[in-house]
Design a protein around this nucleic acid. Sequence first.
DNA 1: CCACCTTTTGAGAGCTACTCTCATTTACGA
DNA 2: TCGTAAATGAGAGTAGCTCTCAAAAGGTGG
Lengths: 214, 214
Amino acid sequence: MSTSLPEHAIDRLQDRLERLPLRERKKLKTRRAIQDHALRLFTEQGYDETTVEQIAEAAEISPSTFFRYFPTKEDVVVTDEYDPIMAEIFRAQPAGLAPIEALRATFREILPQMLAGDLDAVTARMRLTAQVPALRARTTESLREGTHAVLKEVIAERTGRPQDDLDVEAFTWALLGVLQAAMYAWLDGRVAIDDLTDHIDHNLELLAAGFPLC
Amino acid sequence: MSTSLPEHAIDRLQDRLERLPLRERKKLKTRRAIQDHALRLFTEQGYDETTVEQIAEAAEISPSTFFRYFPTKEDVVVTDEYDPIMAEIFRAQPAGLAPIEALRATFREILPQMLAGDLDAVTARMRLTAQVPALRARTTESLREGTHAVLKEVIAERTGRPQDDLDVEAFTWALLGVLQAAMYAWLDGRVAIDDLTDHIDHNLELLAAGFPLC
DNA sequence: CCACCTTTTGAGAGCTACTCTCATTTACGA
DNA sequence: TCGTAAATGAGAGTAGCTCTCAAAAGGTGG
């Protein structure tokens, strides 16, 4: 059961959703309503110009309830459910693969899934993240929280070094760096979404080669 | 006057400070007072637990004045004046040097200066930055706009590539990564202050070699 | 030394993100 | 159908941050 590749992890989530108890279904519905109305309002009139009160009114809930679903206003844009999926896909890669190769394969698998879900919402979130500094900073931080630990663990495993090895850590930080470079190039519109996987591939190759730029 | 090495760029700033008109001197004095009292209070009782009002009271100014000197509470910790100095020192390196070698030389020059200035303040700022998520996120964002922009510029110069070259950007992000790795290793006590320069050197070497960890 | 102009400051009102408490309502299980 | 646990709403309160306006302090020409 754990050796099969997670071909459509997102679809599985969707299926599971339907046979949930009423209470849980309502919660998910409310959560989605908040997120949809928030993204619409942010896009229409700007992030800073939209108050939580407005979002609450549009989603027909109270401001109190808003903060029960999203601890901060930023979380409405930043939160995504792809981190555990990515971790799962990463761990499912063949043990023989070098860390960088495993990373490449992971991104080749997960990117199409992300975009197949809800392209409009993904695009809106991307635009906002690129434009609003606070959101950009938070996204970076959450990328780091979600990815850095996994990278450290897997790379320590594959190199046979301890997890707090300083060289491993330097490597994972550099990895995170080139991934962020790719993300920003995408957010700024300098890399098309269709080329993102190739661009990540290219950056990882550069890293492995010690950046021969001259 | 521009070809001589900036042996003690910080000292020059200090000299310049003394023959400033009274108004400017007072401003700098107020600024420093705010920062000193803020860092002390943050260290004593925590960042979130310290209000701007408390800082203002300790520095004997009004809360209004606080926000005239620092646009946000976070800026008291995040703001530094080292980016232009770093750029200057980097540019003064021999043109024949490879980018990584130039960087290593730059850090060998600038680190002693940074630490000679006010070790306690620097350490307090680093600690807070490492511990408080909001500050970490903001520091990353300010690194992106400050240090990263400078690195991009000077490395584009040395490699003869355009500034928005994607490969240059991947490189600078990886550079920032290994520098942050060194910073966190220092903050965690895994690298002594006297070894910091050597550790940065080592990380940069690893980066240049493509991280041969196996 | 005085008068004039500019810059800096303080006081206070106001907005909004966010927290906490408590009473009310709503889904679930027996 | 009733009792329990969870979800919600209302409201008060805190703190970061903005804006305005009048008072104070620094700099300058006579």
